[in-house]
Design a protein around this nucleic acid. Structure first.
Length: 320
RNA sequence: ACGCGGAUUACUGG
């Protein structure tokens, strides 16, 4: 049971929910952990209907099951359902409270998020991070910074996740002074920025949005492993800072590294062409996009090209 | 063996 449950959980975490379900159905015996692992698979993908069905058919439940169903509703954007499940949860622990805070952080107002946060009997760095995110994603950077400082005053040490979230606020507001202060906190927080590529990408992005292209580039160079998001952020950094040729160059390098450009990569490179008036480059990349990567095409790509051609006065080509 | 928070997107703005 333990081994098979671990496998179900692994599939669930790798977004192979349907494989997880196959295995789950084939298990001769299941305990509450097995059920929870399966439930979690649906929760991650926000498949609330299936999660609910499974939850209802569970022979027994514990607080982990309840947290998973709250989270499933949360990821699906069903705030009232999440709230109802949360209210029904017996013996709520911190993770359960955090799941509810996170749900409101993503789908409700900062005020509502703060209300549930304040009501929680205990707060750890996860709850604080969710509250920071509520402000950061709604362009309330000042409030995100305030929350971050409050957390520090409470004696809670920011981890990489918290730091990346508050960096996001600094990037959104293009607050270089705050961004640098957080960067110092990153350096103080131990591992430094080499240890975590997500955090490094957040730093890179913050400097780029603050117009500090060279600093962003230095962070990019210093990283020993770069995810696709890292590459996209760097390409976009060149695009947004008016260096279209270099954006295109980096886009090529990314492919030479064996990475497949995704939707965001093309948005970045096409917006570089648009901003810098590189009409031919834009057309070439659009062609490559629809021919070689048709599955990632979206409207944003066409918007880039339409603006680019319109600005170049090539109204005749807009039809194509 | 199971549950909670994190980075890039043409959207805006300056």
């Amino acid at each position: 049971v333990v081994t098979l449950t671990a496998l179900v959980s692994a599939y669930a975490q790798l977004d192979r929910v349907d494989q997880a379900k196959e295995l789950f159905d084939a298990m001769p015996l299941r305990n509450v952990v097995s059920w929870n692992a399966m439930l979690q698979g649906y929760a991650i993908e926000g498949r609330a209907g299936e999660a609910r069905k499974l939850f209802d058919s569970m022979p027994c439940r514990n607080v982990v099951s309840w947290t998973a169903i709250v989270s499933a509703y949360g990821h699906a954007g069903l705030v009232e359902e999440a709230q109802r499940a949360f209210d029904l949860t017996p013996e709520r622990d911190m993770a359960c409270w955090n799941a509810m805070v996170a749900t409101l952080a993503e789908h409700a107002s900062v005020e509502m998020t703060r209300a549930i946060f304040d009501a929680a009997p205990e707060k750890n760095v996860v709850a604080w991070t969710a509250l920071i995110k509520a402000s950061a994603t709604r362009c309330c950077a000042r409030e995100a910074f305030r929350t971050f400082k409050l957390m520090d005053l409470e004696g809670i040490y920011p981890d990489d996740v918290a730091l990346a979230s508050v960096l996001d606020a600094a990037a959104g507001a293009a607050s270089l002074a705050e961004g640098r202060a957080i960067h110092s906190a990153v350096l103080q927080s131990g591992g430094g920025c080499d240890s975590n590529f997500v955090l490094s990408t957040a730093l890179l992005n913050m400097y780029s949005k603050c117009g500090q292209l060279e600093t962003a580039r230095r962070i990019f160079e210093d990283m020993d492993w770069r995810s696709d998001v890292t590459w996209n952020a760097m390409i976009l950094a060149y695009a947004e800072n008016g260096r279209g040729e270099e954006a295109i160059h980096l886009f090529r390098l990314m492919q030479l590294e064996g990475l497949d450009p995704d939707e965001a990569s093309f948005v970045a490179v096409l917006s570089a062409c648009s901003h810098c008036g590189l009409v031919h480059g834009g057309q070439d990349h659009l062609l490559s996009l629809v021919q070689d990567y048709p599955s990632v095409v979206n409207l944003q790509h066409y918007a880039c090209v339409v603006h680019m051609l319109a600005r170049a006065g090539e109204t005749a080509r807009l039809a194509g």
